[in-house]
């Protein structure tokens, strides 16, 4: 059989030949880094509660603090190293969302502060807001109609 005869055969051949991602190692790193980031959030949460903030306000403070940490680490060129190591471990928590806003804003600074920073800031995070907000509106409308 000659793998270059058809694109189907070639696709299968390449799939077999290509090295796989080291999934066990990746998952282990993602697990403990992700768990750690959430735990840091939990510590901040406990501190807010201790200071007398309510549940909702404490959650918001947690988000803002983690976003700030992520922004600082991104600016210092450290976040991409954590991301390379942890993969989804730093992507999935709110830190990844913040990183996806900050990284293009730094990168596209050379195209100016309006169309560079201002517009490109949402290249990755824009879709998240579009789908997140749209989903919430749909859920709200459904609730309004049926409940």
């Amino acid at each position: 059989m000659n793998p270059t005869d058809t694109s189907k055969e070639y696709g299968e051949y390449v799939k077999k030949k290509a090295p796989n991602s080291p999934i066990l190692k990746d998952c282990f790193n993602a697990f403990w880094v992700g768990g750690l980031i959430c735990s840091i959030g939990q510590l901040i949460f406990f501190y807010c509660k201790f200071k007398g903030l309510d549940q909702t306000a404490s959650s918001t403070v947690v988000s803002i603090c983690l976003i700030l940490i992520s922004v600082i680490l991104t600016s210092l060129n450290i976040f991409n190293k954590i991301g390379k190591f942890a993969g989804a471990g730093s992507l999935i928590p709110i830190t990844g969302f913040a990183n996806s806003i900050v990284s293009p804003s730094i990168e596209y600074k050379s195209e100016g502060y309006v169309m560079g920073v201002g517009a490109k800031m949402f290249t990755v995070a824009g879709p998240v807001l579009v789908y997140g907000i749209s989903a919430s509106v749909i859920i709200g409308i459904i609730a309004c109609l049926f409940i």
């Binding site: 990746d26 992700g34 768990g35 989804a88 471990g89 928590p93």
Partner: peptide
């Protein structure tokens, strides 16, 4: 907190890989 946060990230990692 640690376990659930970690597991949610692992699911993401499996999707990526």
């Amino acid at each position: 907190c640690f376990i659930v946060g970690g597991v949610l990230c692992v699911i993401g990692q499996i999707l990526i890989d």
